[in-house]
Design a protein around this nucleic acid. Structure first.
Lengths: 108, 108
DNA sequence: GTGAATATGCCGATGATCGGTATATGCTAT
DNA sequence: ATAGCATATACCGATCATCGGCATATTCAC
């Protein structure tokens, strides 16, 4: 399964191409501050996701002499993200069901 | 974050004490066949979860000369499971939101 | 002029999971 | 009878994503 940082990186890039540092901030917002990516995690994940075909380098932009490398999500990346969403929801629902079974058992 | 196999193990044990092999089968059912735990993953996770205080050894039972070791979830384990559920749901919702933003952008 | 934000990237360590193997019993089909 | 499968626990080395820290360079604010 795709892990939390990778999942949120894919989610961050889904709407439109975004550069590394922008992804860092987007992930923090998306997760309401719960997940602050380490730079090492981010750039390693970007390389890996490009290698897998989930992302691709869209273009590079120089802003104030600082290079921005924009990544775009691919169809394969979208598939991975969508199936990840379904998987998270299925696992959450299964766990909720188990917690409900526990409550029933407690009352019996 | 708690990973998928660990999360499903906690969910499996939530309703009532269960032994290792029973957990293996419960996780497979809970995940609708998507997750088949390796024995190594399972027993290592059980030891780890007991060490963390999320599970504890409830009792041992001998059935047909085979020892069954029953594990029970603790209050700390329930807290971990519940916050895991919320986290999965929040991440799934955030990703769905991003996918919707993408669709809006495509149409514009 | 010091520190924070922006921006990318490398590196070693950690740790959960994978995949395989070992051991032992009981059941079932050939 | 015996080979294979299910039950049941457990160890082992390998993999790999993430963590945590460090390096580098520029711009902006105090």
């Amino acid at each position: 399964m795709v892990r939390e940082p990778t999942f949120l990186i894919l989610a961050a890039v889904a709407p439109a191409p975004l550069h590394g540092y922008g992804i860092l901030q987007a992930v923090e917002q998306l997760s309401e501050g719960r997940v602050r990516l380490r730079a090492g995690t981010l750039y390693a994940a970007l390389d890996r996701l490009v290698g897998e075909g989930s992302l691709l380098l869209d273009h590079e932009e120089a802003v104030d002499g600082r290079l921005r490398r924009y990544y775009r999500i691919t169809d394969a990346g979208l598939d991975a993200l969508r199936s990840g969403v379904e998987r998270l929801e299925a696992n959450a629902a299964a766990a909720r069901h188990q917690l409900a079974r526990r409550r029933e058992r407690r009352l019996a």
